[in-house]
Structure formats: C-alpha cells, structure tokens
Amino acid sequence: MKQLIQGNQAIFLGAQKAGAFFYSGYPITPASEIMHAFANSDVNFIQAEDEIAAISLCIGASLGGAKSMTATSGPGFSLQQESIGYAHVAEIPLVIVNSQRIGPSTGMPTIAAQQDIMQTKYGSHGDYFPIVFYPNSVEECYRYTIEAFNAAEESLSPVILLCDGYISHLYESIDTNIKVSLKKRDRKPLGQLNGQHFTGLTHESDGTLKTMDSEFYRKWIISMKDKINEVAKKYNFYEYIENKKSDTLLVGFGITSRVLMSLRDKYSIFRPIRMFPIVEDLKNISKKYKRVVVVEMNDGQYKTALAGFLGREIEGISLQGGELSTKDIVI
C-alpha cells in the first residue's frame, strides 16, 4: 500500500521495520521529525539533554540488547564524534542519522548542504573505518535505514545514515511493503555474556586491556579494517547510469544526484549510495572516462576522497547555498 510521506518519516518507518527498540535524540533542524515520530510510537523513547547524552543513551540501550538509533544534524553530529569513535572500538551496533545543513556552527539551519561528508569518515580522533549510506529519495530513506541497521548488526559498529535538508523534508509516495532481509541481533545483551568487559581502551576480545602492546595494536587495527570491509562488501550499494557516448563521468549523491539525473542524456552518472568505504567498482568504472567530475554541495569533500582513492585527477563542481540548478553545473 502506498503512502505519501516525507523522508524523515520514512527513516522512522524503516527503523521500526528493522526492529528498532530504542531511540534517543535532541531537537535539531532538519532532523526533528524523526524524533517526533519515535516519541509518538511504541519504541522506547528518551529525549536527551544534549546530543552526547542521546548517543550515550543509545550506546547503553544497544549493549542492553536494543537496536538503537539517534538522528541529528551537523552541530549535533560534531558533538557525537567521540562517542562514534568509542562505539567503533567497543564494537557497539548503532545507527546515527545526520541530515545535513549549511555549516559550520549554527550556519543556515533550514538550508541543505553536503558539508559533513569528510566528517563521517574522519570526524572522531583516531583511525577507524565507518560504513556510511546516503539515500536520494524517500523510498531509499526507508530502504537504507533498514540496511543501516543490518550493517550495524553485522559489523558491530555505528553506521551513519547521511541525509540532507531537502531529502528529509521531501514528500514522495512510497510502498513500505518491500522485500528486504532483516538482520537479527546476534550478540547477547549485557547480563548474558559471562563477565564481558566493554571499553574504549585497546583490548582483546574478552575485554582484557592491551594499552601498552604496540604489536597487538598493529594487528588489531588491521583486523578492524578487515572486519568492516568484509561486511561492507555485502552492502555494495550504488547506481551507475552509463552513457556510451560520454567521455565524462559525473558523480553525485543525495539530493544533488536527483538534479544530475536530468543530464543523463549527455553524461554517464555514478551515484554512490554507500559513501564509505568507497565502492571498489568505481575503480574499473572510472577507468573508461577521460574526466570524472564530482558535483556536490560542499567545497569538494568527496572529490578529495575520490582523488585519493582512484589516484587520478578528479574535478569538482561546488553547489553551495542550497540552490540546485543545472545552469550551475557547467562541465
């Protein structure tokens, strides 16, 4: 059955479908509607005193056995970075939604942007390898929220679901009756683990501290990277629209990709849905093109990431200020 709903509501419905049992958040534009939906549902809900408390409550609830989510925007996401790093080290499944707006700081609360891309990959101190999804429609908000919960369970890590002020508030007609598998919570909750210790200090799998063992750390960091990459392979989400006549590949994601679609008659388009780890297939895809141009609503963040990943020159078009028009996309 189809319903006309907005992106934020689709995120709530996706979380509900995935079996979310706990939500904590703090009011922030343009993500608040997600919290409102949870407040008015059967899901265990606590409005926290700040975003750090919100993610901490989610961490506790997750360890206690509940699939948990928090949703915020740039300022809150910045506050949550330490906790995100912690959840990677302590191996805590979690879904964090960041619906982006212009920053830094308070910025332009009601104007969309894509300025937190690098922060999803490098926001916390330390080396870690986050899984990040970014839908571009209300249907994808629903679908990839479910997949974010799945990936979080499989990787025992905090998965980021990026969004933006446009997609969050976009109304589209979607059918929530889609075929998607749900990953059950595998790891037992606190109380059933036999003296298991969870910590942000470098540790062995039973929680024994290894804070002075450099050799152990070198092995551990590689195992963390491998763990994430193995899981990410199962979530290889992207869209590639080939235009055989084009020597230029446009790269776009989120709301920007909706605008790029109108250029498919002239150019090939690559749309990552999994932003990080960067999709491996892009290496082969991009080889065919003389030019790769990333069109994004920031100062060139994903362009920088791809230039490093692909080891070639990448061009960028920055669409800032929240206005999206093909007249500004001059290839």
Partner: peptide, 20 residues
C-alpha cells in the same frame, strides 16, 4: 558484564542499559 565508557557519559549509558 561491565562497561567502561568515555569520560563523563557514564550516567546516560547506564540509563540506556536500564531502559533496554
């Protein structure tokens, strides 16, 4: 079963565990 949290955030983590 025990949790060693980040600095200062032990109360909301504990509250989250109890809530779940």
């Amino acid at each position: 079963d025990s949790v060693h949290t980040i600095h200062g955030r032990v109360l909301p983590v504990a509250e989250g565990v109890k809530s779940a």
